[in-house]
Nucleic acid binder design. Structure first.
Lengths: 336, 336
DNA sequence: ATAACTATTGTTACCGATAACATCAAAATA
DNA sequence: TATTTTGATGTTATCGGTAACAATAGTTAT
C-alpha cells in the first residue's frame, strides 16, 4: 500500500506538501510540484479515501439507489446519472433496493457508513422517509427521483403521472374503449397513487363510470407471481374490460402473460397499454403501446442537481423538476 | 455523527468494549453487552466504515464491475451477485465501465481507494490486465466474469462460447443455411475471439467454406452507429449470406434494425440469431432465436466464490467454472 | 492462604490523510 | 537597515475505529 508518506520520502518533502499537490490546495512551488508528481506516478499511488473522508468528510462518490435494476427505465436513469457524474469528476455507485424497504435501509446505512457525497434515490415506498431522515441527519444531500415522499423537503425530479395517464387513457378512449381497467402498483408509492387519481379523473372527465372491480393492485417488480390478475380477469368474463392500463412496464408484461395463459388475445380481445417504455429490443417487434418517460434525463438532471447541492452552487430553495412523458402508440392497443 | 465514544459514554464503558460488542469479538459479559446494545439502538449508531477500514483493512462491501448496465445479460448477473452478497451479509456496489478501459480504471482506483472487500469484474478488454494487477497489488480478491484475461491467475466464471456457438450454428445449418455470416464483438475481448474460433471450427466440421467477407466486426454495446454493417450487407447482394450470427444480443438488435433500413426482412430474407437472451419483454412477442447463458448464475456463483476467497474458506488453487448455455429457438431463424 | 489462572474491561498507539498552526527564508516596505 | 509581508514548507493533533497489550477482579488449584 503506497501512502503519501512513501511519496514524501521519495520526493524528499513532507507528507503535507504531498497532500497539497494532490489536492491542488495551498501554495507549492513549481519545482516541488513536479518532484512530487513524478514520485506519485512512479509509485503508482492511489489515495486512501477512507483516511481522506475520515478527516475531510468530503467524497467524490455519488450513489444511485434504484428499486429494480432489471427494469430498463432504471437502467436508463442510471446511464444518465453516470454520464453526468463522470463529466463532473464523480463516480457513481449503484444500489438496487429491489422495492424492499429493509434492503434500502441496509444500503443507506452502508452509504452513510462509507461517507458517500450524495445520493440519488427512488424511494421504495412511503416508509423510506425514515431512510431519508437518516441522510438528513448525516448531512448527506439527496435528490428524490420519480417518486415523492410527503414531509421531506428536498430537490426532486419527477415524471408527470397525471398528464401521462391522461394521454394514454385518451388514446384508449379515442379508440372506442369504455371499460378500461387499471392494474396499479402498490398505493404506498406516490406514482401509483397519482396514476390512480388521474385514472379516475380522466374517466370522470369523459363521463365514463368508474368500476371498483376494474381497479386492481399489483406490484412494480418483475416477478410472475401475480396470478391474482388472471383470476380476476377471467372471472368477470361478461363484464370484462376491453382495455387495461398497467401502471408500469413489468405489470404490463405480466398481465399479458397471464392473459395468454387463459387464452385472451392482445389486442384482439383486449388492449393493454402501460407507463414506461421497454428496452431497445422492443424495436424489433413493436408491440406495447406506452407513455414513455425521459428516463435518461431523470438521471442526468438529478445528478446535476445533486452535484450543485454538494458543491453549494445550488440555489437555497429546493427545486422540483417535472419531466414530460410521451405517448408511443404501437400494437398492443386496438379499436374496440 | 454518533461514534463509539458517544456509545461508550452513554453505556459507561470504554470505546474498546463497544467495539467488541459491535464486532462480536473478544469476551464481553452479558450485562455490558445489553447495556451497550441499548445505547447503540437509542443513539441510532451507524459505524464509520472509513475509520474501520483504515485500521482493519476489511470491508463487507463487494463490487460488481460490468460493461453495460443496459444489457439484460448484465442486469441478471447483477441480480444474482446481489442475492448471494445479501445472503452472506455483504453489500454490492455496481460500477458500469461502459466497455471503456479508462472508465474501468477510474472505477478500480475508486474501489481500491474506498477499500472494497472484493471485486467481481467483467473486464472491458484485454488491456484490463493492468487494472487486475492493481487489484492484486492491493490484495483485493477478484473474480473474472464472462471474459478471460491471459496471464491473470484467479477464480473465474465463464460461459461456454465454444459450445454455445456450435449449438446455434448447427441450428442454422439444420435449417439449410450454408452461407452464415458472423458479426462479432471486438477481438480484444476473449468471448469474441472464442466465438469466432468456434464459428470457423463449426463451419469446417460441416465442410462449409469460411468466407472472409462474412466475418464482420462490431461492438457489444447498445448504440446505433454501426451502419457499416448495413453497408457491408447491402453491397454483396448477390452473395449475401442467408443467416447472420450476432455475437451478442445488442449486435443482433442493431443488425436487424440496419437490415430493416435497407428493406431486408427477418427471417424471410435472412435469419438472425445471437448469443445472450433479451429482457423479459421478449416473451410478449417471441422473436430472437438465441443461445442464452445462465446470467443469474454467473453473478450468484461468482459472488459465492468471491466471498469464499475473502473469508479464506476457498481452496488454495483457483477455480474456473464454466456454465452451459441453452438454445432457445424463436422466430428470427427460418428455413433457407 | 497464596500462587496461578481466567474472564472482563481498559489504555495506548496507530491506520492515512488533512486542518490548523508554526517556521523560516526571501521579498517588499518603511 | 530594520520591519513587515509573503511564499513555501514543516509539525502536530485529529478524524473513528481496532490491534496489541495492560490491568483488574474474581476463580480455581495447590
Amino acid at each position: 500500500m503506497v501512502t503519501i508518506y512513501d511519496i514524501a520520502t521519495k520526493a524528499n518533502v513532507s507528507p503535507m506538501t504531498v497532500s497539497r499537490v494532490i489536492n491542488k490546495s495551498g501554495k507549492v512551488s513549481e519545482a516541488t510540484r513536479t518532484k512530487v508528481e513524478n514520485a506519485i506516478n512512479e509509485l503508482n499511488y492511489i489515495p486512501n479515501s477512507s483516511a481522506r473522508s475520515l478527516t475531510s468528510k468530503k467524497s467524490k462518490i455519488l450513489s444511485l439507489v434504484i428499486t429494480d435494476i432489471t427494469n430498463p427505465f432504471f437502467t436508463k436513469v442510471a446511464r444518465g446519472a453516470e454520464d453526468k457524474a463522470k463529466q463532473m469528476g464523480y463516480s457513481l455507485l449503484l444500489c438496487n433496493s429491489d422495492e424492499d424497504i429493509d434492503k434500502e435501509s441496509d444500503y443507506i446505512n452502508m452509504l452513510v457508513s462509507t461517507g458517500v457525497g450524495g445520493v440519488l434515490i427512488t424511494p421504495s415506498e412511503d416508509k423510506s422517509r425514515k431512510n431519508l431522515r437518516t441522510l438528513n441527519k448525516y448531512n448527506i444531500p439527496f435528490i428524490l427521483l420519480d417518486r415523492k415522499i410527503e414531509g421531506i423537503n428536498c430537490d426532486a425530479v419527477h415524471g408527470d403521472s397525471q398528464e401521462g395517464t391522461r394521454k394514454i387513457l385518451e388514446h384508449l378512449i379515442n379508440k372506442g374503449h369504455r371499460k378500461i381497467a387499471i392494474i396499479n402498483g402498490p398505493l404506498d408509492i406516490s406514482t401509483a397513487r397519482e396514476r390512480q387519481k388521474a385514472y379516475i379523473e380522466t374517466l370522470n372527465a369523459y363521463n365514463l363510470p368508474v368500476h371498483e372491480e376494474l381497479i386492481l393492485q399489483s406490484h412494480y417488480k418483475n416477478k410472475d407471481s401475480n396470478s391474482d390478475i388472471s383470476k380476476l380477469l377471467s372471472v368477470k368474463l361478461e363484464k370484462r374490460p376491453t382495455a387495461i392500463f398497467a401502471a408500469n412496464n413489468f405489470i404490463a408484461i405480466n398481465t399479458i402473460k397471464e392473459l395468454r395463459k387463459i387464452n385472451i388475445r392482445v389486442p384482439e380481445d383486449i388492449s393493454v397499454v402501460c407507463f414506461d417504455d421497454l428496452d431497445p429490443s422492443i424495436d424489433l417487434n413493436p408491440f406495447l403501446t406506452v407513455v414513455a418517460q425521459p428516463a435518461y434525463h431523470f438521471g442526468f438532471t438529478g445528478a446535476q442537481m445533486l452535484i450543485e447541492r454538494i458543491e453549494k452552487t445550488a440555489p437555497p430553495e429546493f427545486r422540483k423538476i417535472v419531466l414530460p412523458s410521451k405517448l408511443i402508440v404501437r400494437n398492443s392497443s386496438a379499436h374496440n
